[in-house]
Design a binder for these strands. Structure first.
Lengths: 111, 111
DNA sequence: GAGGGTGTTTGACGACCATCGAACGTCGAT
DNA sequence: ATCGACGTTCGATGGTCGTCAAACACCCTC
């Protein structure tokens, strides 16, 4: 049965800018978010490969948790896998222009 | 004689998004940047008080250095004090919309 | 129900970070 | 020359972070 990850997603009113910025500040997480922005949605392992992060599964799991707890992405259990999506509506409501800016930034300014 | 702080300000082409985000992710630095956005320009001590950071001078000096090395602000020696300004043009050129978003975010999403 | 794929959790380790106080250098004014 | 305001630098401390490997839990399929 499909299900939410209860308790792990902060509601919109509890999003905080410093936490969001800190979550986006790590190069691996930033690449994952930008890849997810292109893909629309993606299971963890698929995103791990698509973003070419060069890190292990457990480390990615940690990053995914940080992004989730910052309110940046949403995880939904679908069958055997967790499908990740960006929380575009909530981010745009709280921090207008921030996500668009991060997704649109030229790749030459990444590393 | 008035002077630049040579060597401490990265040129526009060397700005990096993870570094900028990391610099903005600290609550004290974020408040300082937002206060500086309101003031336009400000000497260190004045900004330290205007932003109500609750930290000492040496700690503020450290934060100012982090922001400067990330390319977020510019420091100019004017007489006995350092006058700080945001590098709006460079930030807007590299990360369109980012600074505006950070400055415009509602204060209720800060802490 | 056995097996393979998927992702999490735990413990550990090294690196980095925010903070402070004290000492220092510099500038303008007295 | 001395003084006070301004800001930096240094060393130390306590906390947080990114990474990994190993072990675990879950789900789907055969």
């Amino acid at each position: 049965m499909d299900a939410e990850i209860t308790g792990a997603h902060p509601p919109r009113a509890e999003l905080r800018l410093p936490k969001v910025l800190a979550a986006l500040a790590d190069p691996a997480r930033l690449r994952a978010v930008r890849a997810l922005g292109r893909l629309g949605e993606s299971p963890c392992t698929e995103l791990l490969h698509a973003a070419e992060l060069g890190i292990g599964r457990s480390t990615f799991s940690h990053h995914q948790k940080v992004l989730r707890e910052a309110g940046i992405l949403h995880a939904e259990i679908r069958g055997a896998q967790r499908v990740l999506t960006l929380r575009r509506d909530d981010l745009d409501a709280c921090f207008p222009g921030l996500l668009d800016s991060v997704l649109a930034t030229d790749g030459k300014y990444l590393d």
